[in-house]
């Protein structure tokens, strides 16, 4: 069973969770031999931007020592063999420079996005 994973909600709880729990979940599925790929959509396309830095957060005496690193998590997913797509229009409308995107990301148009569904048994929208 091949399942396409659409992620659209970005930075919702990444500080508390130290990652995006959906990307974490998908990585676990991959280790369990799940056939999964990712499409980044909406604000989540920014996960593909390199050099993200969520460090330096502190509340009173508490300091976050292991902040989320979304670009590195995505790179890890790519290295696991997960194909990571991103909607080109959503990247463009946010003015994200091509030079700041992870090189392993595959950009697709909105129309190609719809056609992609035919390659999967289930489509999960997070």
């Amino acid at each position: 069973m091949k399942a396409l994973q659409i992620i659209q909600s970005g930075y919702r709880c990444t500080i508390e969770e130290q990652d995006d729990p959906v990307i974490w979940f998908i990585q676990v599925l991959k280790t369990a031999e799940g056939e999964v790929d990712i499409v980044l959509r909406g604000n989540a396309v920014n996960y593909a931007v390199i050099s993200q830095d969520a460090s330096g957060l502190s509340f009173g005496t508490w300091t976050q020592t292991q902040p989320s690193k979304m670009d590195q998590d995505l790179q890890q997913a790519i290295d696991q063999g997960i194909t990571v797509y991103a909607i080109a229009e959503d990247i463009a409308i946010r003015g994200i420079p091509e030079s700041k995107l992870l090189t392993g990301i595959k950009q697709i148009s909105r129309l190609e996005f719809a056609n992609l569904f035919n390659n999967y048994d289930q489509v999960w929208t997070w």
Binding site: R41, G42, R110, L111, F113, A114, N115, F117
Partner: peptide, 9 residues
């Protein structure tokens, strides 16, 4: 964009 996705499908 969701409506457009429905239309594209």
């Amino acid at each position: 964009n969701n409506y457009q996705l429905a239309l594209d499908l």
